[in-house]
């Protein structure tokens, strides 16, 4: 099992969700997050006042999938989240040691 964490542009949220649904991924956690990557933050001056705009709004998708499906999910994520511009985001893949369904104690991939 792998956990995928994808940071994407806010306006891509619906598209990514639909793309995941289309390949049969229904379980996911979506969070509104703020952060910055390599570009770092900068200060924006508006009418003489300085404002920090170092944290840009993004959307984070978290999902856990069976090993066999990882590549397929990554393809769906990149295809739906890509605009080709800086700021499109990243995908991180983690090893998952165990998954347990609280309701009935199911374990492993059958708990997903």
């Amino acid at each position: 099992m792998k956990k995928l964490e994808a940071i994407v542009q806010p306006f891509k949220m619906e598209e990514v969700k639909e793309a995941l649904k289309a390949i049969g991924i229904d379980g996911m956690t979506i969070t509104e997050v703020r952060g910055h990557g390599r570009q770092k933050g900068h200060k924006e001056v508006y009418r003489g006042q300085e404002y920090n705009v170092d944290l840009l709004p993004k959307v984070k998708f978290e999902l856990v999938v069976a090993d066999a499906r990882v590549e397929e999910v990554i393809t769906a994520l990149t295809a739906s989240a890509r605009t080709g511009k800086i700021g499109d985001g990243k995908i991180f893949v983690y090893e998952v040691a165990e998954a347990i369904r609280i309701r009935n104690g199911d374990r492993g991939e059958s708990a997903l």
Binding site: E32, R34, L56, P57
Partner: peptide
């Protein structure tokens, strides 16, 4: 009006 939403609105405004 979370900080997340307000930064999006400000981005659009500016």
């Amino acid at each position: 009006m979370s900080p997340w939403r307000s930064s999006l609105l400000w981005q659009l405004y500016s």
